[in-house]
Nucleic acid binder design. Structure first.
Lengths: 161, 161
DNA sequence: TTATTGTTGACTAAAATACTTGGTTTTATT
DNA sequence: AATAAAACCAAGTATTTTAGTCAACAATAA
């Protein structure tokens, strides 16, 4: 289990999706705007998430993405694993071939740490995050910001017309 | 607390140093050979470790590095912090300015995780690692490998002479 | 039919990582 | 005094990863 900004982006996007999941699917364009992540980068991440069976894409107008499972049943660890492509085993990635096909000196330590992180993150679901006050506050603020942005855009259009 | 291969290298090197700490200092050349890390890269890492007050350099022939404190009093978290230069706060590094000077949606989550990792790693000392069977085994194997390497070298020299 | 959205792949820019080169200083040993 | 072994230092380079761009195609609601 590696921890990179890629994984963080994925979790943020999934949390945004979970928060805005009503009847309608959520478009990546909306998520990109709210979370200030590049749209095409999101597309790449959601391609992975879709293949991992965590989200479902709905094409065409009114389409977007939906969670494939209830948010309570999606944990953070699996989101990160889905996008981080468990990478080369050259450097202590998985099994003990970190130094000339033998375990490196600290192999044991990193295995323990990985397990620790995995357990912590797999114990947290998207659903449980949605119950945290702090997160709901941030999400609501982002929704307001997006609304004012949209208003500004339509004003701009009226002016240039 | 970021987790990179840089930090892993530092911990590995420090553990090697702790394991071979007798009366004499340990040279970086030895550590580099045993752990297959580039010598100059090690020098850079040890420059940081020295400035952080964790090791002491001894110059001249017979010199090398020594731990500044007993191995029981050096924990893994501080080794990683010493080399990883806590980096820009642009992306959720420290305080909540991850998205346009506001906390990002998952700020709360990563703070919790960081704390979790820090607590885990600061609870593990070099000394305690040296008591783990697995680690001692690996270290001993590496010592043997180094010995045969040295033997091979002197044979080579005799041949070419 | 058209606009909207997902889907895919190839390519690029910037940053971080890992490593190299080439020195200088200190100091034990001869 | 000369030499060699080591730490120390700074700049540069190669590789990899990250983050993002571009351009096309596919499905589908309106």
């Amino acid at each position: 289990m590696r921890l990179t900004t890629k994984g963080r982006y994925a979790v943020t996007a999934m949390l945004d999706l979970a928060f805005h999941s009503q009847a309608k699917p959520v478009t990546l364009t909306d998520i990109a705007t709210r979370q200030t992540i590049s749209l095409s980068y999101l597309e790449q991440l959601f391609s992975r998430l879709r293949k991992a069976g965590m989200v479902t894409g709905v094409r065409g107008p009114g389409g977007g993405y939906k969670l494939s499972r209830p948010s309570k049943d999606i944990n953070i660890a699996e989101i990160i694993s889905a996008v981080d492509e468990q990478v080369d085993s050259t450097k202590c990635g998985g099994e003990g071939n970190c130094q000339n096909n033998q375990p490196c000196l600290t192999h044991d330590l990193w295995m323990g740490l990985s397990e620790q992180i995995r357990q912590y993150l797999s114990g947290i679901s998207l659903g449980s995050l949605l119950e945290r006050e702090f997160i709901v506050e941030v999400a609501n603020r982002q929704d307001n910001d997006l609304e004012t942005l949209v208003e500004l855009d339509s004003l701009q259009e009226k002016i240039s017309a």
